Simulated assay, not measured.
Amino acid sequence: MSDEQESAVQELPLMGAGDKLRAAREAMGVDIEHISAQTRIPNRHLEAIEKGKFDSLPSRTYAIGFARSFAREVGLDDVEIADEVRVELADMQSHRAVMAAGMEPGDSAKLPSAGLAWFGAFAALLLAAGVVAFVSTYFGAGTGPGPLIAEGNAAEAEVDAALAENSAGATGPLSSAGQVVFTALEDGIWVRFYEDGGERLLEKQMSSGESFELPAGVTEPRINTGRPDAFAITINGQAVPKLSDEPVTLGDTPISAAALLARADVPDSAIPAPN
């Protein structure tokens, strides 16, 4: 990091991760569009990161992976930024847990102690992990006997590596006729890709980092899996939201580029017409 960037970042000691990234970008004299072009991360996600709205991104792992890529591009320590994003996400989750319990912001008489708030957040995390493990064990389609791997450093590293690989191989903008690629983020993830009507394209347990490209000209491709949360998806090398952030059984789900863009709520005006 240059002296100018370091000075800009250190001006406000209480800056959040998003503020530090924005300050470093401005010190470099570049705009969001430049960072987006270098990292292949959509502008709206970069803007959300700079505003500290990490919970508005597709998932926790994407928030941390995107922030790390952003940090490297502007010369900041990506490990330090990733740690700060984790802390901010934990604070957001704790705040939501307090609000869900019926607390009214600004009413000091009703606010719990810091210890009680953290205990409540920890209990909520344990409950959520138990529910996810139960669903994965009893309703996952062919996921095998292995335990569910919680989102953590390993999953974040896989997403980060997938982003780097996708950036290197990006072939163009988002398009309803673009190349769709599914990349497994964990080992032993069972999946079946097929065409509408039953023509099988691929059926196997994929390994972590293994990718599958939908063949060109395939007719109405579909997916069947119990772990849609364990697949990163790109269109022409650009990441799009997962089919689900939780382990849930999906069957006969359309996965063409057009269907994925529709799920991601990408406006038609942002999608170039195919040649």
Rank of each mutant, 00 (worst) to 15 (best):
N43C: 12
R68A: 15
A154K: 06
N153P: 03
L148C: 03
A232N: 04
G146S: 12
G197M: 10
R222Q: 15
G144F: 01
A177R: 13
Q238N: 09
L260Y: 02
E186F: 00
A97P: 01
T234M: 05
M1S: 15
L202R: 15
D91G: 05
S208Y: 00
L174A: 09
A164C: 05
Q179N: 13
M28R: 15
S7L: 15
L127I: 12
Y62Q: 05
R200L: 14
A37P: 01
D229E: 14
D31H: 13
V218G: 04
Q179I: 14
Y138N: 08
V131P: 01
V191Y: 01
A71V: 05
G29K: 07
T234L: 03
E104C: 10
E11S: 13
I41Y: 01
G197N: 07
N166I: 03
F134Q: 12
N275M: 14
H95Q: 11
G172Q: 10
K204G: 02
D77H: 12
L261Q: 06
L127S: 12
R192F: 04
A273I: 10
L116A: 15
D160Y: 07
L57T: 07
V240N: 00
Q205W: 12
G52I: 12
E4D: 12
E186Y: 00
Q5R: 13
L201I: 13
N236G: 09
N236W: 05
V180L: 07
P105T: 08
D265N: 15
E6Q: 14
G115P: 01
F119C: 12
A63H: 02
R227A: 08
A216S: 11
A124C: 09
Q93V: 08
A164Y: 00
E203F: 06
S36H: 04
P254D: 11
V135W: 01
S7Y: 08
A27N: 05
E26I: 12
A239V: 09
F182C: 03
D265C: 07
V180P: 04
I189G: 02
Q38I: 12
E50Y: 06
Q238E: 14
E220S: 15
V181Q: 08
E6H: 10
S211D: 04
D3G: 06
A90G: 11
V248F: 07
V181S: 04
V79K: 14
L46H: 02
